[in-house]
Design a protein around this nucleic acid. Structure first.
Lengths: 325, 325
DNA sequence: GTGAAAGCGCTAACAC
DNA sequence: GTGTTAGCGCTTTCAC
């Protein structure tokens, strides 16, 4: 790999001038041309490692997510990537499997690789960002909060839960269950709270506890809980699934039992990109995942660029796409 | 961030000794203990950038894929990640959108970041690996070949096409169409060839050309082509979808037209992890995507470790999961 | 506008 | 086994 010195020699300038050309500093036109020409001849590309070591900051940002197999997060990743690569940054995707230890490892790597910043969908509310923040590395939280006073982008979770539930109520369902994720996960809890509020208002006499099921935010979790509900003494006549995968699992089970919507009302929070249902049979509360990624990336790039305003949290509203049966 | 020098001073040894401790070289027990103690006190983590600059190789491997939103590739990514992180390597996911220019950028980054190696699902057969290989960086091809004489892991594509088609023939279908990806993509072509062989054998009189449709390997491609086929003069009575997303699109359209399987026979090459069909209504030729990732990562790690045997290509056989109706 | 030179933090010869 | 030292390739004062 050609270095700056070889380019300098060939162009008849100093290494410093070569560096300046590649960093857009003031260099006279003729020298600039000579440098570019020499660089092309030698096939020179700046060594990012050396640059990072010297600058103490790389042009890489880390995107740390709990489940790379969830289309919600990959859609978000696309948004991040588009904005970042536009600005000359590359994106490293780190999959934590919702495990705090894996997450800690990746955050440590972000530090020791001098990454420019981190976008984090936290594995839990115990994530330790002390070191990262102490080093002045900007962090933007997505999807969930972190307990730190940093920038964030979240969905309107409670509103999403309300909208999904309200939609089923309007369609005439009366025993609406809620399948949600782990209780300690903020999004799971808030979406369930949205459901609870609407149910309590419309059906004040109903005992809601048997209808609320915490599970994992995964297909198998949805299957399991849906089976349970169908086998219970008083099964629901409709369900709200608090995320896309949970919804997929639930619908699979319903299909196997011949209970496809609208026999059983179904509203899902999150999109179902790979579903094979008639698209209109299920109410979907669309979560603008790509937009979340775009917004987070812009905020992060702003911070990397030196923006020092107080931390903001952006709440993204959701769009309800009702079932049309 | 504490450096090796500060640790050395506190531990009363030379910087070289600190380095040796962190690289598992021979250091006496007491000095090792002193170093580890000092490192803990100072919260020292080795600076990977400096190490990479010095060593001319990092502990990062790049996984370059055409579509991060395709579960097939994310499943593969999991396999890669599991093996890599076990060995102390981290994985950078790079999404090319099947664009050769984006791919070239990422391969350039892999070079200038001194990444240890690359696992590549090539965007096309024109991918330029010259520079990477000239620098001695190992590259393993996955899913598709590259035209270079390097290690690779591929699916048994022709066999998959045959198995899917044969299965529909056995079920009694006679006009079986094939929906496949872009003609210039190896997997798309080979799977279609598998279909063609079986059809030609069973139905020698049938004109196959109107039944073979090249498209994109995406949901919208599947939708489009399925609509076309349904509207054609002589629609098929069954279809083989050459990848998962194509299958999803096709099934969506069939559902909308009330033609769900088994009214129309459907066989899909690739898994449908997030589908909501009765699981057994469709013949699925499972592609061991995770296993492909695992295999590729092991091969790459071998090369990084200095393995110099001739290039091998591993072909992974597929498992047919017939529709049970 | 341009060059000389120091140094980012680490590793690997080389001496002892 | 351990210390000394010379860079890896780049950026960035500091002079001019």
């Amino acid at each position: 790999m050609a270095t700056i010195y070889e380019v300098a020699k060939l162009a008849g300038v100093s290494p410093a001038t070569v560096s300046r050309v590649f960093n857009g500093m003031g260099v006279s036109e003729d020298k600039t041309a000579a440098v570019r020409d020499a660089a092309r001849q030698l096939g020179f590309t700046p060594n990012r490692t050396a640059r990072t070591l010297r600058r103490q900051a790389s042009e890489v940002i880390a995107l740390v997510i709990p489940d790379i197999e969830n289309p919600y997060f990959t859609e978000m990743a696309r948004g991040v990537e588009d904005v970042a690569s536009e600005a000359g940054y590359s994106v490293v995707l780190c999959n934590t499997d919702s495990r705090v230890d894996k997450e800690a490892t990746y955050l440590q790597i972000a530090i020791s690789e001098h990454m420019a910043g981190v976008i984090l969908a936290a594995a839990s509310d115990h994530s330790d960002l002390d070191e990262l923040l102490a080093r002045g590395r900007p962090v933007v939280a997505v999807d969930r909060g972190t307990g730190y006073d940093i920038d964030g982008v979240v969905m309107a979770n409670r509103q999403a839960g309300q909208a999904a539930t309200e939609n089923l109520v309007q369609a005439g369902y009366t025993r609406i269950a809620c399948l949600t994720g782990p209780e300690h996960v903020e999004t799971a809890y808030e979406r369930a709270q949205g459901w609870r509020g609407v149910m309590a208002r419309h059906f004040p006499e109903l005992d809601l506890d048997p209808l609320l099921r915490y599970s994992t935010f995964r297909v198998d979790g949805g299957r399991e809980v849906m089976e349970e509900l169908l086998g219970s003494a008083e099964p629901p006549d409709a369900i709200v699934a608090a995320n896309n995968l949970l919804g997929v699992g639930a619908i699979q089970v319903l299909t196997e039992h011949g209970m496809t919507p609208p026999k059983m009302g179904v509203a899902v929070i999150g999109s179902l990109p790979f579903t094979t249902l008639t698209p209109s049979a299920v109410t979907v509360v669309r979560l603008p995942a790509r937009h979340m990624g775009v917004t987070a990336a812009k905020m992060l790039l702003g911070r990397i660029g030196g923006d020092t305003q107080p931390a903001r949290t952006v709440v993204l509203r959701n769009e309800v796409q009702p079932a049309r049966i």
